[in-house]
Amino acid sequence: MDAMLVFDVALALALVGLAWAVLAAEDLFAAVVLFIVFGLMTALAWVRLAAPDVALAEAAIGAGVTGALLLATLRRIGGAESAETTPRPVLIGVGALAAAVTSGLGAAFLAAPAQGPGLEAAIAANLAASGVEHPVTAVLLNYRAYDTLMEVVVLFAAVVAVWSVAQAPEPATPLLGPLHAGFARVALPAAVVVGAYLLWAGATMPGGAFQGGAVLGAVAILALLARDYVPAPAHRAWARGAFLAGTAVFALVAAGVGFGPRMAFEYPPALAKPLILLIEAVVTLSIAATLAALFFGREPEPLGVEVEARK
């Protein structure tokens, strides 16, 4: 037990130090790399707090996909920063404000009842009727499915916004060397299996649509980098269909079960598991396609335009 205490304190100190280092790093590239390390350490801490589902999501999405997005943006904008510095009085004033807010939150945190009863009893009592055996999946896809539908809508809105904002053609990404291309060939099939397994496992143990979708999205990002897949304007219709499919199927199922005495989102118990798996499968593919499109960062343009920009 004492060894774990030492581990917890060391990890907590590393987290705070990394958080500071991310924002204090001289170079933006170093800041992004430190941020990815911070994300992975966060995932480790959440495993210690008995939250493996969230740790998987943070490692895959919070550190992995977000890190890829940051590195892609850094390449596009270049690492140059303005030499603008914050005036000293502003630093002191904001520092005092941040200290006051944080210590106020700290006082509230220390005064709050710890380990108090939450909703775990209600979750356990209704788990048999939810259609899945894993509590987090039951909350996401059944008890609070409306939240999850809105979350899928937010992801859809993000890709719409990104495609609307970024239309400028940009320099092509450099080709991967033979070593990386070979790695992609070996890693891609394995990652597809891992992503599909995470989706399936979500019904009974940690995993689920978001973690599986993120792993499959990483597969698509690797395929984009290795040029195993080159987006073409002709694929736009398919891509739009893939972005929308998750929201559409989720909403149709949710509304479709709401006839007679049932309300929307109230799956019939006998059909709950197949319906949840159907929603999860389509949402997984939608998330994977959307995350890859967010990484690509723009609508696929005709090849000529890209060649023009490369000059």
């Binding site: 589902d53 997005l69 609070r144 979350e151």
Partner: peptide
Amino acid sequence: DAVPHALVITGIVVMVS
């Protein structure tokens, strides 16, 4: 408690968006 876990997973996806 699984409810805050689900909220944070939702938050992570909203944050990446």
